[in-house]
Design a binder for these strands. Structure first.
Lengths: 138, 138
DNA sequence: ATAGGTGCAAAGAGTTTGCATATAA
DNA sequence: TTATATGCAAACTCTTTGCACCTAT
């Protein structure tokens, strides 16, 4: 999903396309699953008077219309990323780094349950997102 | 992993086995991925003067020794669960409910990309936990 | 005996809200 | 034109911290 598609979806959803919002979308592509505050800090380079409210508010709306996903792994603050269908992350319990796994996917899968790989994988979980049976029935 | 195994791991890690901590472990089994505050509230039934500090502190230590995992999906507060190797959750974007998927796993997998199932699956992600290559090399 | 845990209260951090002003449509 | 977004500041919620007392080992 490219930037223009995201902006189209925002228009469809009745959201206004402001320069701030466009830049937030751009930063979501540029930065690697940033926190709200990381986006805020980058924003200030282009919009020195941007407020936290704008960043949080926009991220929340992008999430509601389904183009952004909020991630957290028990760090203080949430991370955000553009929604793509398949998603793989590796979370290091030592340094707290969150890796995107497009490149390392097979290596991590192989590493699961062995000690012979650069990544040491202790466990994994799978998260599905959508509408549950109960809400679907309404 | 049963309660006694968890308590053994706590001893091995040099943690003291207090009545409060035993009860927190029990509640982690009884409740379905509770928040810290849900555990705190249940605690007060047995320990009327328990403090938030005790609950948060204990959950953190259980997490560090690897028997508890902290989950979050952008709700205000984190959810906690006992670590088991394979983990599947379904997160409903309408009601916010988090379902354990042992029973529904196949149904959810089938539902991915179709409209013919009770669960409507929009996307998924996979989270691995362990030690990254960089930290492993140290 | 003593290192570590508990309960209390206050502080900290991230996020949200209310409101006046500004702006996209 | 006008409904919506922005920026500011204050409020709110979740989590952590400091400290005196207590307790598991």
């Amino acid at each position: 999903m490219c930037k223009d598609t995201v902006i189209d979806k925002m228009k469809e959803a009745g959201l206004r396309i402001t320069p701030q919002r466009v830049h937030i979308v751009e930063l979501l592509y540029q930065l690697s699953h940033p926190t709200a505050d990381q986006i805020y800090l980058k924003m200030t380079e282009k919009f020195p008077y941007v407020s936290h409210a704008t960043v949080y508010n926009t991220l929340k709306k992008l999430k509601v219309i389904g183009v952004v996903r909020e991630l957290s792994n028990g760090d203080k603050s949430s991370h955000f990323e553009m929604v793509e269908t398949e998603h793989w992350h590796f979370n290091c319990k030592v340094c707290g780094e969150m890796y995107d796994l497009e490149a390392h996917k097979n290596e991590v899968l192989m590493a699961y349950g062995t000690n012979n790989y650069a990544f040491q994988v202790d466990s994994f979980r799978v998260e599905f997102y959508g509408v549950c049976a109960k809400c679907n029935a309404k």
